[in-house]
């Protein structure tokens, strides 16, 4: 808006600041809490200024963990989470881009049926099919393994659908020109379609990485071995102590650490987003 009304500017800034405050304040509190000693919360009041125990808390979490909570050091859990998130993100992208390629560029019987079959699974989130999936994974002896953590979450109707929609906007002439230029189906995919989808892939990667990182229910169900705990479910275990106050300073430092990788991914991938927005012409 090109209007120049000081009051309106003031009001809109006020609303924005209030919005930021609502979102950012809990994060701030978590950070503050992670810098205090274990006894500072017993009064029931949470301090608002940083305390002196930050380095101590974080190093405890990273190296030793909290034995009473049954949680291994954070390093292991973060490594597990990283493997899970990366495998899920990369696996989902690889599988869905290939199936979208098949659906859009190949004529085979029941093509539409296949597409709709994939599409319908969109309506079934992990939680709905979690019991049968658990049964299958257990029978395949994949409990307490990276395979068990990732494979059941890899198939993705959403990503397939997004890639399909993108491929449909790529002009047919491009494929025909490639055919005349001597590129077969896979060559066309590798040389032309894949580079064109790069920004879509980056966007999906961010979304899927966070999706994988934030998985809670599934890892909680299939891991009983502390070596395979992921950090998001680990926090739950840290807070879950019997007959004692949870060590909030340690829980909060774990929370802050758990937040870091998704934030880094977003910040790093943002460049690709912007690039994708500038270069939209096909």
């Amino acid at each position: 808006m090109v209007e120049n009304r000081p009051f309106l500017t003031f009001l809109s800034h006020l609303v924005l600041i209030a919005g930021v405050f609502v979102v950012a304040f809990p994060v701030y509190l978590a950070f503050i809490a992670s810098t205090h000693g274990p006894t500072d919360f017993l009064s029931g009041l949470i301090p608002l200024l940083p305390g002196p125990h930050m380095i101590e808390n974080y190093s405890t979490m990273l190296t030793e963990g909290v034995s009473t909570g049954g949680a291994p050091p954070l390093g292991t859990m973060m490594w597990n989470s990283l493997i899970m998130a990366l495998t899920i993100a990369i696996g989902k992208i690889a599988i869905s881009i290939l199936s979208a390629f098949a659906i859009v560029y190949f004529r085979f019987p029941f093509r539409q049926t296949v597409f709709w079959a994939i599409f319908i699974t969109l309506m079934l989130p992990v939680e709905v099919r979690i019991l049968p999936t658990f049964e299958v994974v257990a029978n395949l002896k994949m409990l307490n393994s990276y395979a068990g953590l990732t494979i059941p979450l890899i198939a993705s109707a959403t990503a397939t659908f997004l890639f399909r929609q993108f491929f449909l906007t790529v002009p047919d002439e491009l494929m025909e020109a490639a055919r005349v230029d001597g590129a077969g189906a896979l060559k066309f995919f590798r040389d032309i379609l894949l580079p064109l989808s790069l920004t879509n892939i980056a966007a999906l990667f961010v979304i899927l990485f966070i999706y994988g990182w934030n998985q809670y229910l599934w890892p909680l169900l299939i891991t009983t071995d502390a070596d395979y705990y992921t950090i998001v479910m680990g926090i739950k275990r840290l807070a879950d102590v019997t007959d004692a106050e949870p060590k909030w300073n340690l829980v909060m430092s774990a929370t802050v650490l758990a937040m870091l990788p998704p934030v880094l991914v977003v910040i790093f991938m943002q460049r690709l987003f912007v690039k994708g927005l500038v270069e939209t012409e096909k």
């Binding site: 025909e176 020109a177 005349v180 230029d181």
Partner: peptide, 17 residues
């Protein structure tokens, strides 16, 4: 098409972007 040894010019150019 590639084996026919022809080259084609398309209406919308179809250049690889």
């Amino acid at each position: 098409p590639a084996e026919r040894d022809i080259a084609m010019v398309f209406q919308n150019y179809a250049l690889y972007p």
